[in-house]
Simulated assay, not measured.
Amino acid sequence: MEIISKFAETAIPSIHLRTLAAFVPILEERKAEIEKIQRKTFVYDDKRLTRNELDVYYPLNSTLTKNGKTPILVFVYGGGFNTGSRQLPEPFSMGYRMLGSFYAHRGFITIIPDYRLVPEVKFPAASEDIRDAVNWIFTNADIIGIPSISAPDVDAIFVMGHSAGDMHTKVLTLYPPVSNTVHPRLKGVVWFGGTWSFDERFRVEVATQQYYGSQVQQKEREPRALWNGLSDEQIKNLPDILLVRAEREPDMILESWEGMLLDIEKRRGQAPRAIICKGHNHISPNWALCSGEGEEWGEEVVEWMKARLALE
């Protein structure tokens, strides 16, 4: 974290690879502990030949739900709509293994699916892929379970998305053609480091145009518009929402964050629970997991999920 604190820039292209490189040697030193967590890979959509797999990370000791089963966290990585993978190449192979290990060590079966990217697909295909992964988990608990821990609890599924993955998770939550086709009732969603509304800085990006379409379509499809399009009853029936961002996000995300807080409080009658990842930039929070420093935000997410389980 000391190295990260010296990065004056917050723009994602400026800090991306530098941030990853800072954590590589730290995570390599902790590789043995990280790899104590068993990982298995499954195909969740056999109709496609690529980007149709998910990785399951198994806790050594489960956090138990009221059903005596193991809760599930699905993590949706980012990558600007046109990059990203559940397993990264060397020298970055500890990401996202460290994230799967971190939450598995805290008792959650942690699942990281791949999804399709632009230019292959357009809105809302990536969110449909995440939906398909969640639905596959819901109907295949017996397949992903292992004898050494309690069975997966498909009534206790959380979904956390970061950056572009946050955007896909918001669509999964707020866009009825997708949200209405998610089979399980999600226990909670974590919106992490994505934007709420699109300004000119976001609209002109090539990947944004490829995925969301024209500026008119972007305006109709931005999370704020999807939120405003829901009825009061639909808002009431949404799963619990946790908001997370880094302390040193790009200006666009910081500005959008304030509007999101106000919009959610206005419609739900109370301020949403929010976590600020102290000292972090946009990239560093996930990479800090299992590093021994800068992990506090992750512990807070775990506490929030366990509190949702306690309310059952």
Rank of each mutant, 00 (worst) to 15 (best):
I3T: 12
I4Q: 12
S5I: 09
S5F: 01
F7T: 08
I15L: 05
F23P: 10
P25R: 03
E28V: 10
E29M: 10
E33Q: 13
E35M: 13
K40G: 08
D45G: 02
P71A: 02
V76M: 05
G80S: 04
F81I: 05
L99E: 12
G100P: 12
F102M: 11
F102R: 05
F108I: 13
R116N: 15
L117F: 01
V118W: 07
P119G: 05
E120T: 07
V121R: 02
F123D: 05
D129L: 01
D132I: 01
I137M: 14
T139G: 06
T139E: 14
I143Q: 14
I146W: 00
D155I: 06
A164Y: 01
G165F: 02
H168M: 10
P177G: 04
P184D: 02
V190R: 06
W191R: 02
W196D: 15
Q210H: 07
G213A: 03
G213S: 04
G213K: 01
S214R: 14
K219L: 08
S231L: 08
Q234R: 12
K236M: 04
D240C: 06
E249V: 00
L254R: 08
S256E: 00
I264V: 14
E265S: 04
G269H: 03
A271H: 13
R273G: 04
A274Q: 12
I276P: 09
K278S: 11
N281T: 12
N286A: 05
W287F: 11
E295L: 03
E296M: 07
W297P: 00
R308H: 02
R308C: 09
L309C: 03
E312G: 11
